[in-house]
Design a protein around this nucleic acid. Structure first.
Lengths: 155, 155
DNA sequence: TTGAATGCAAAATATTTGCATCTTC
DNA sequence: GAAGATGCAAATATTTTGCATTCAA
């Protein structure tokens, strides 16, 4: 990876120890943390940091294209230093959010299909899968609530 | 459409005038309204209805599979009486949320692809496209902020 | 009549803004 | 030294819960 200081400079962002650590943490994580998660992690190094600083930092990192922000449907923003288009898996039981690296399609191509179908200018795409991870599959409630929900409604 | 009263009964929901109207409004709308939108609409018929009733009603309609809830990334839940899997388009300028009816793929099939790739039990999928609708395309800011964001970051 | 639905109010959760102080450039 | 970043606090927006009253079955 190129020098962080240089990358920041190119985008007009000053390099502060807090900001550098926040970006490093996000770059080194595949957990798709929320601002709160990042805050808790950064405090191990900067105990005096405020949530507000973390929040504003991830916002500017996102605005400058260093990370992407998305929402899995739990009404909490999550951040991802992997800015290339890729699907996510969200476990309905434990809430983990994983990258889906082996999805056979390049979902970047969906953008063109959607542009053709909608006559809109498509900028980016989100593809989210919901279900149960192997760890949760065994222990989740017997009633397939989610499936029933989807299939039991009127048509 | 089958008799609403019967549909509700099948799911153990009582039929109240408010609930019936809320479901009718959602069934007749392609606008993917928020709870607040529904509230404002229902008040035209029931001026005394509380937001809370609307909120609880859409929640139970969702739990019973009559509608689906999703989040486009603006941290507001939206509701859709079309419970079959279909992509959505979100305009980054005016915020409208449209169905993408002519998307060539049956995105229900993505569920199987994701199950194979993730080794998880996939229950449903969300596919969201972000961009500019024809009405907003001309009037949006000259700087392609969103695109720059996506392409200008580090790799 | 009885449990569910409604209406009102308040709590909880997360995001966002204001401003004084400090730091990077 | 000036513009941007940080830290503290409070405002905002939405979702969610509690409870007394009303209503559908």
């Amino acid at each position: 990876m190129a020098d962080i200081k240089e990358l920041f400079k190119k985008k007009g962002l000053r390099t502060t120890p807090q900001r550098e650590l926040i970006y490093r943490l996000l770059s080194g994580s595949k957990a798709h943390p929320t601002a709160e998660h990042v805050y808790r992690e950064v405090r191990k190094t900067f105990p005096a940091i405020s949530f507000n600083t973390v929040y504003k930092t991830v916002r500017s990192l996102e605005e400058m294209g260093f990370i992407q922000r998305f929402n899995t449907g739990e009404n909490i923003y999550r951040y991802d230093a992997n800015v290339s288009p890729h699907p996510h898996f969200i476990c309905l039981s434990c809430g983990r959010v994983d990258d889906v690296d082996d999805f056979p399609d390049d979902i970047g191509n969906y953008v063109h299909m959607a542009a053709f179908a909608t006559h809109c200018e498509i900028k980016f795409v989100n593809l989210h899968f919901y279900g149960y991870c192997p760890e949760c599959r065994g222990s989740r409630p017997k009633t397939n609530t989610e499936e029933e929900k989807r299939n039991g409604g009127p048509d």
